[in-house]
Design a protein around this nucleic acid. Sequence first.
DNA 1: GGAAGGTATGGAAACGTTTCCATCGTGAGG
DNA 2: CCTCACGATGGAAACGTTTCCATACCTTCC
Lengths: 369, 369
Amino acid sequence: MRQPATIKDVAQIAGCGVASVSRVLNNTGPASAEMRDRVMAAVNELDFQFSEVGRSLQSSTTRTIGCVVPSIANPVYADAVQGAQDVFLPAGYQTLLICTNYDAEIETQAIRTLIAKHVDGLVLTVSDPETSEALAFIESRQVPHCLLFNMAPTNHTSWSVHDQAAAGRVADAFAENNHERTGFLALKFLSSDRARQRYNGFVEGCARNGMRKPALLEIDESNEDLTDLLGAFLQDNPGITGIFASNDFLALAAIRSARELSLDVPGDLSIVGFDGIGFGSMVMPSLATIVTDPRMLGGGAGETVLSMINGTAAPQTPSPDQTFHFRAGGSLVPLVAESKDDGKVAAFPPSSNPTRKISKSNRRDQNET
Amino acid sequence: MRQPATIKDVAQIAGCGVASVSRVLNNTGPASAEMRDRVMAAVNELDFQFSEVGRSLQSSTTRTIGCVVPSIANPVYADAVQGAQDVFLPAGYQTLLICTNYDAEIETQAIRTLIAKHVDGLVLTVSDPETSEALAFIESRQVPHCLLFNMAPTNHTSWSVHDQAAAGRVADAFAENNHERTGFLALKFLSSDRARQRYNGFVEGCARNGMRKPALLEIDESNEDLTDLLGAFLQDNPGITGIFASNDFLALAAIRSARELSLDVPGDLSIVGFDGIGFGSMVMPSLATIVTDPRMLGGGAGETVLSMINGTAAPQTPSPDQTFHFRAGGSLVPLVAESKDDGKVAAFPPSSNPTRKISKSNRRDQNET
DNA sequence: GGAAGGTATGGAAACGTTTCCATCGTGAGG
DNA sequence: CCTCACGATGGAAACGTTTCCATACCTTCC
């Protein structure tokens, strides 16, 4: 990498001091027209551009924001990052992106490096805001920052879906459709405070609606064997007619697994997801889910950080019920009275009752129409 | 933001010169055990951490890589970025992410800034590698870089799907299924060399298979009216039985639009996508498509850049036919003889009945269900 | 005992900026 | 004619590192 021209080179060619070059180029301080011309000529000749690192050292500002999320393979985070960077870029800030892969160790390490690199602010989703070492460090260094998809501890601000309230809404939806026994399906339950919040909210919501406490099905990375796990889960917890998956991916995977188990969705089993990814409304049956707006949240977090940097008033964070809404879909239907009377039969294994038959033929119709 | 401790503060507390602190902390040069202890004590007392910007100025290295893609809302790019950063992070490099939103102006501007920030390398997808101002600038500054999803001009290296060959494979697939008249559906045809490569490859493949030259349906941003556009397109180009969409999103949207037009997929119209996003195999009918591995490509581009930086041998870029494979799916079926005899009727309008009326009423049904 | 060589250490230059301050004209006002 | 103010300009310090070099001390060997 050829070393680029510096302000000294420009000064030499223009036959002036470096101070004059700086003044001309930054339009700070006086300069004669003739001086301007000479400097500009030299700049063009050398194709000169300021080194931001020299500048940063002097100004102790980098026009760079750190952005830390678990993974952008998950479209929720991808959209959020996109939303944030769409705010930062026009404001003259670039984004240093870190994907932690849900690893707290990487999270801590990367954030220390970001701060060493002197980012002007941070937008981040941590694995556990209450215990996060990284978060404590950020606080001790007083770096402007805003959480994303985390419940904010005191003294922090956050743009986040109110997971608990949203999960409660899902419980309401099941109740409205006469479901009484449900399950909660989660991935990486332990390493994600989001999944836990959703579980808590769902449990609470079920209780509020006089439903049974939902059974918990927790899986880890490999979703290869989801079908087996789901089968065993339904056998261990007979009578379950509805499953709340902690995100839409899981919900769609669950639908597929249910089919492999010869269960009809929603005939035998209703399924509700979380996040509201676009595909949810393109599949058959369409996915009932909690719709969120990750892009808006990312953008909001970005605005908040910018306002902290500029000392302007921070934008309001959204009120809990503005962060989500329930979207009905074909994957959640009312439980008909007869199945409710005999939930066990309706759920697993599917009996030879008419429900399943109808749904089967329905599905075939859809494929072949 | 409180200003953090510097090496001078450490030196002062440890009662030594800054050079000793640097030597101890970096393990470069000799130091007595006692000196080590004093320095370490001071470091812990101050919670000292080197400023990377001071370091960068001295070493002219930033341990930062620029990564430029159109948008990470598109999972193809999101996965590629993830793949690249999964290579960079363990190697000690962080990633400055720029999403250009397909805007060449932003692309140029952002890349200049990245270079001003002295990134050690670049991984990038440009809008047009042949004319890209940014690419020329990168070359003039001799920054290690690797293209991604772009055909590499001479003197550049690239990790990319061989779009043209892949599109040719799609033509083969249509031919194998007896389709003879096809259409090509593209978004932002003009601002993406990828779409053009795919079109060219498809045209070529169709010719090779003795098929008609595919008709081109080009749409821009808003896919709201895709249904109308598709309807008009099929009417203007009667006899079309297959559509190749330049990406899976479009393909899925086309399937939906076809349904709204009362066309059956694949009965009346076969559709093939491109990219192989996971959802393609979860929908009914499953999507026939070209499967690619964006994560692998991003990772490969990352490795290439690292090897350029380290002066080690660059990893081989994959051979064209390793970058994709065709995945059969329910959205592409053989054209039966009778339809082939009378393609016009089988395709659009589906029969002699008042097509418009049916599609209209169908659409209304969907809205209100 | 003195020279030679090694280890431990600190001062200072350099990296590329910005900005304070001093210098030098020059035109205006007394 | 002298002063004053102000515009134009350049030198130099400062930002936080690393590293070269000089110095000081301690062994070791002739």
